[in-house]
Design a protein around this nucleic acid. Structure first.
Lengths: 212, 212
DNA sequence: TAGATTGTTAATCGATTAACAATC
DNA sequence: TAGATTGTTAATCGATTAACAATC
């Protein structure tokens, strides 16, 4: 099966932003949005939004704009979040706890189903409804559950090793909170979250003019 | 004061990645790195790395590569993380707790100095060494401390309002964990962290070929 | 000297924007 | 019909890559 046209990752990266903004508008009882309005909310040009969406189909109406609920459905289909993905969480430290209790996954296509750690003190304890399991059982449990997505919230030193084992267990997408670049085979996707990296990206612009 | 040459944000965005990888190499007792090796670690082309670095100066030696400690110092200067920035944290929920106890800021240029929340139950309690203060006192406290950077870990509904107040208090850079786009004036910088967005960006690629 | 790698230029590639016919 | 906004094409803009002289 071949994709008729490859869509660039930069476009894919904007789709979740469109989705989030549109869902917010739905909450505000809005029915219709124009590319212009959506663009204004997101700080993205209207032309860009129309171009991006047009890669996937014709979702709007000339003279009117986009029906929000229809477009939300379409983007959910495109991103395959018109279903709920089970997710494995590795690392039951502070960040792991925060992720496990995060309410934001609920209506956005994800639910944590398995939690692992290697600290004997933590094993068997509960985070929310889920028991912290031994990392040694990870391969078996992930396979059994058929889980494809993992969040990695372990210390930097062990991250690559844990990632390797996750991939062996069938994981295809990793959200990595450890401050290291992971080497992964093709067909496995990684996204990185490192607050220090994000902060360092802003300090460059904090020139003295702003310090007055 | 004018910058002789404007450097694109996409280049700025890669500098913290170079820094992190180089610091890691320092930890591994490495002294010298070539653009090729660094590129391999990061999945970035060697030409790109040389081009990026050359925007800021000539940091390498032909035939040899880059002295890691020298380059680390230079990038720290460029990003202005050759100092420690005080940071205010707003929101003492699970994510706030995780950020407050995160060890990763330590040697990367940041330390949390003030923590705010609006929940009367939390006010006065301690997270690590810091007392949770009333959001009502935010303006005064941030001004007094001269803090320019904030991390925003409050629910979506209140985020824009809190951001407005942070900006009034003199904040110039916001690391936003709330799942909303913030409207901010020019001269204020925002970075976004939303785990659901990152996950949604990967599910697109999780096509059925991978589900076998 | 021979080998390696930088810094930089020119060529390529890709993304964004502007503009407008189509049409609701 | 008049006004508005899409989807799309062509033009512009910017980023990446390839290649190589300079030089350690």
């Amino acid at each position: 099966m071949m994709q008729s046209k490859t869509i660039s990752d930069i476009v894919i990266g904007r789709m979740p932003l469109y989705l989030r903004a549109l869902q917010r508008m739905l909450n505000e009882q809005r029915q219709i949005a124009s590319s212009q309005e959506l663009g204004k909310r997101l700080g993205i040009s209207a032309a860009q939004i129309r171009k991006d969406l047009s890669q996937f189909g014709e979702f709007g109406k000339q003279g009117t704009g986009y029906h929000i609920d229809y477009l939300v459905n379409k983007i959910q289909e495109i991103l395959q979040v018109d279903r709920v993905w089970d997710v494995a969480l590795v690392g039951a430290g502070d960040m792991g706890h925060a992720l496990a209790s995060y309410q934001g996954f609920n209506h956005r296509g994800f639910q944590i189903k398995l939690i692992f750690d290697n600290d004997p003190e933590k094993l068997g304890s509960y985070i929310g409804d889920y028991k912290v399991m031994d990392i040694a059982d990870m391969n078996e449990e992930i396979h059994k559950a058929g889980i494809k997505i993992a969040m990695l919230a372990v210390p930097a030193a062990g991250a690559q090793e844990v990632a390797n084992r996750l991939i062996k267990a069938g994981i295809k997408a990793v959200l990595n909170y450890a401050p290291v670049n992971l080497k992964v085979p093709v067909g496995v996707y990684v996204q990185y979250i490192d607050p220090a990296i994000h902060l360092q990206r802003m300090t460059y612009y904090l020139k003295s003019e702003n310090d007055l």
